[in-house]
Design a protein around this nucleic acid. Structure first.
Lengths: 91, 91
DNA sequence: ATAATATTTAGATATTTGTCTAAATATATA
DNA sequence: TATATATTTAGACAAATATCTAAATATTAT
């Protein structure tokens, strides 16, 4: 499978979940640690960690270790890529 | 669950499959019947029918019965809606 | 060093999803 | 009317997914 198709696959897989879409909306406002994200959901920390991993593999978020914390940020570059994909549907 | 969230859910669910994304790209070029679409894949007709149903429930395509055929078209209105959603990720 | 806190990894499980074949339905044609 | 063609529905099944708890790892503080 081509690298491009794999990338698109990972992006749409990552977006196909309400929790992950909410996480993106939260990160749009400001960077948050894994724990801060988990606190905003009624879902266990390991599950949130798994969601973050899927978002990371899709390149939709980046993470940076800060001491014992891990801070997550949204990656707007990839958001532009999604835009491009949607555009191809139009013309 | 709100109507809006349900709509977004259905859209991303529909987009989370390579076959369905290919169908959309094909319909972008021109309208096609269920059979014409099925002929372009190594997948059974019932499976394609199922994919078309998912696209229809997401409002990504519309269908029109023409005699014994069913013609499918892409719905660009919803494509605009996806655009809107992606936009909210940016600002 | 030990204990506490933050996060991820591993393994289990129920649900959802994509696919198939067989059967049903709808329309057109001989 | 009987047969052929187009499409969908129904039911089954394997693979993928979201979730959980328990355990492992990493860092900080006592």
């Amino acid at each position: 499978m081509s690298k491009y198709i794999n990338k698109v696959n990972n992006i749409f897989k990552a977006l196909n979940d309400g929790t992950r879409r909410e996480i993106l909306m939260m990160l749009k406002e400001k960077d948050l640690t894994a724990g801060e994200i988990a606190d905003r959901f009624n879902i266990s920390k390991p599950s949130i960690s798994h969601h973050l991993d899927i978002l990371k593999r899709a390149d939709l978020v980046t993470s940076e270790k800060k001491g014992q914390f891990v801070s997550y940020s949204i990656n707007t570059t990839i958001v532009d890529d999604i835009f491009q994909w949607i555009l191809t549907l139009k013309n």
